[in-house]
């Protein structure tokens, strides 16, 4: 059976880190790909948020530079970005989503911000590069 990672195991450590910085704590890069590492809700949320923003910028740059035109590419971005997030927490980290409030909470993390960021970058690159 899949081992469930308890949030309270590293509670003290996380609290300490949390007070230090409030958001992205200086954790090791290796932890990002370590399925055995334990996560607390804030850390995982922050990591997912930033992954989504990076995906948004990369997709926006690509879509704008090619350029891809049409509403269907927005849907492709949403599917791609959600797919990456899902693959990250479910396949790479193997976290138990129930512990973090279910799939909806994890997939919503940073969704709106990344969506607007994607539209912004796409529009900017498209307008500047092709006119």
């Amino acid at each position: 059976m899949k081992e469930r990672k308890s949030a309270k195991v590293n509670l003290q450590e996380h609290q300490h880190q949390h007070q230090q910085n409030g958001h992205l704590s200086p954790f090791k890069l290796a932890k990002l790909f370590d399925p055995d590492a334990s996560w607390d809700k804030d850390q995982l949320g922050d990591v997912l948020h930033w992954i989504r923003q990076v995906v948004a910028v990369v997709c926006g740059l690509l879509w704008g530079a090619i350029p891809l035109i049409g509403g269907m590419w927005i849907i492709l971005f949403l599917v791609l970005s959600s797919g990456i997030i899902y693959a990250y927490y479910a396949v790479i980290l193997k976290v138990d989503e129930e512990e973090f409030g279910g799939h909806a909470v994890l997939l919503q993390e940073g969704l709106f911000a990344s969506f607007t960021l994607f539209l912004l970058v796409w529009t900017l690159v498209y307008s500047l590069a092709h006119f």
Partner: peptide, 20 residues
């Protein structure tokens, strides 16, 4: 454009500074 900017930039800035 201003709407897109204000939402994406502000949200990410707040997140970056730890003010969210």
């Amino acid at each position: 454009l201003y709407f897109l900017c204000s939402i994406s930039i502000r949200t990410n800035l707040q997140k970056f500074l730890g003010f969210s």
